[in-house]
Lab assay of single mutants.
Amino acid sequence: MSIQHFRVALIPFFAAFCLPVFAHPETLVKVKDAEDQLGARVGYIELDLNSGKILESFRPEERFPMMSTFKVLLCGAVLSRVDAGQEQLGRRIHYSQNDLVEYSPVTEKHLTDGMTVRELCSAAITMSDNTAANLLLTTIGGPKELTAFLHNMGDHVTRLDRWEPELNEAIPNDERDTTMPAAMATTLRKLLTGELLTLASRQQLIDWMEADKVAGPLLRSALPAGWFIADKSGAGERGSRGIIAALGPDGKPSRIVVIYTTGSQATMDERNRQIAEIGASLIKHW
Rank of each mutant, 00 (worst) to 15 (best):
E195T: 12
L196W: 14
M209E: 01
G216W: 08
P105Y: 05
T198C: 10
P181Q: 00
K190W: 09
D207W: 12
N152H: 15
I45F: 14
T139W: 06
V258G: 05
E108K: 11
Q97L: 14
L150K: 00
P12S: 12
E166N: 13
V157Q: 14
V8K: 15
I244Q: 01
Q86E: 12
I93Y: 06
G242T: 02
S96L: 13
K252G: 10
K30G: 05
P224N: 06
V117S: 03
A16V: 15
G234N: 01
L199S: 11
T147K: 08
I256M: 07
L167K: 02
T112P: 14
L38M: 11
G239N: 05
R118D: 12
L197F: 06
A200T: 12
L120A: 06
L146N: 02
H285M: 09
A200C: 13
L111Q: 10
D231M: 04
K190T: 14
G141E: 06
I243N: 02
V82L: 06
D99Q: 13
Q86S: 15
R238L: 10
N168R: 03
S254F: 08
L49M: 15
W163C: 12
G85V: 06
M180G: 11
D269Q: 12
M180Q: 15
L197I: 08
A16Y: 08
I256C: 06
V117G: 02
S264R: 05
P249K: 13
L282N: 03
Q97M: 15
F22N: 10
S240H: 06
Q4K: 12
G154N: 08
P249V: 06
Q97R: 15
G226T: 12
T139G: 10
Q203V: 13
E169K: 13
E119M: 06
T262D: 07
I275W: 02
L38W: 06
V106S: 08
L100S: 04
Y95D: 01
A222T: 14
S80Q: 12
E108F: 08
S128V: 00
A276V: 10
K232T: 01
L188V: 12
T139N: 10
A132V: 00
E237L: 13
G142N: 06
M67Y: 02
Q204M: 15
G194S: 14
D177M: 01
V31N: 02
K30D: 05
E62K: 06
R162Y: 03
S80V: 11
S254D: 13
S96V: 11
I244Y: 02
D250Q: 15
H151W: 15
S104F: 02
A133T: 11
L47I: 15
G226D: 11
G114Y: 05
L219Y: 03
F70D: 01
T267K: 12
D36K: 15
L247P: 00
R273S: 10
A133P: 02
G251P: 08
T178F: 02
Q204G: 05
A9Y: 14
E61W: 12
G263R: 07
M1S: 01
L223G: 03
Q88I: 11
F14P: 02
T116Y: 05
V72K: 00
I125R: 00
M66F: 09
R92F: 10
V257H: 01
Y44D: 01
